[in-house]
Amino acid sequence: MFRFFFAATALLIHVSAAAQEPALTPDSRLPGLLRERAVLTRRYAEASAQRHSLFGNKPSKKDLQEVVDALQGIVDKDQQIVDVLNETTQKATTTSARLAATTTHLETSSRDDRNLTSQRLAELESEAQNLREREKQQLTKLRNLEAEVAEAKQGHFVRDVLIAGLALACVGLLLVRRRRK
């Protein structure tokens, strides 16, 4: 019986330590169960202190039955407390697994976003490089065309000067021929 009392006390200390953790929610049944267990523990202490025997300072059968009933109440309450703790543990495990899955999903999504952004940035840089290259080619073509236009203008100028010179020579020859006549 003392071993059982020692085990129940150890469980109460463990439950009390667990009750101080922030895992308790406002709707948790654990504080109420612990208060009820404390009442049952006081009832046990009162029952075990009673000595109503006819033979002196020994507990009577009724006193022993009250002790047994009090201990059974404590055991039942401890089982309820263990059930609540198991339930809380299960909820915490489920929440932890859900958070781990969410974290994994977010990490994967973040990695995919980074890869997509890097790929898009590389495409944009490649496109910008292509545009710069085309601009250089267009500028080279433009310079070549301008050089051709300048060369053609110079060719036209030389041609026009030759035509004008030939026209003057023809006019001069006509004048010389008319004078000779």
Rank of each mutant, 00 (worst) to 15 (best):
D76E: 08
D112G: 02
K153T: 00
L142H: 14
D112W: 09
T103I: 14
A152D: 13
S110C: 14
L145G: 05
Q72P: 03
L71G: 08
E135P: 02
D69I: 12
S118T: 03
N86I: 10
K91V: 15
T88F: 14
K136P: 10
L64Q: 09
D78G: 03
A147K: 05
T89S: 12
T95V: 11
L139R: 05
R120I: 05
T88N: 15
A150P: 08
L71M: 12
T117K: 10
K141L: 08
E146Q: 05
T95E: 13
G155M: 00
N144A: 00
E123K: 11
Q72Y: 01
D83R: 03
S109H: 12
E151D: 13
R114D: 11
E151C: 01
D83T: 08
V68A: 14
S126V: 07
E148H: 11
R132K: 05
A100N: 04
Q80L: 15
D78F: 04
L121W: 03
T108N: 04
V68D: 13
R111M: 09
T93K: 09
Q154T: 02
L71E: 08
A152H: 04
T88C: 02
N130V: 00
H105S: 14
K153Q: 06
A101K: 15
A122V: 02
G73E: 07
E127V: 04
D112P: 01
I74W: 00
Q129K: 11
L121E: 08
Q80E: 15
T102M: 15
H105N: 12
L145P: 00
L64M: 13
N130A: 11
Q72A: 10
E66Y: 04
L121S: 09
R114C: 01
Q80V: 03
L131C: 06
L71R: 10
T117F: 02
V82E: 14
H156Y: 04
N144H: 06
E127T: 06
Q129V: 04
N86Y: 03
S96Q: 14
G155D: 02
A92L: 15
T89M: 02
S96V: 13
D76S: 07
A70R: 00
D76A: 06
V158S: 00
A100G: 03
A97S: 14
Q154L: 11
L64T: 00
D69L: 14
Q137R: 15
Q138Y: 09
L124N: 09
T108P: 02
R132I: 08
N86G: 15
E148F: 05
H156M: 03
L121D: 04
N115V: 07
R132H: 09
R143T: 15
D83P: 02
Q72F: 01
K136R: 14
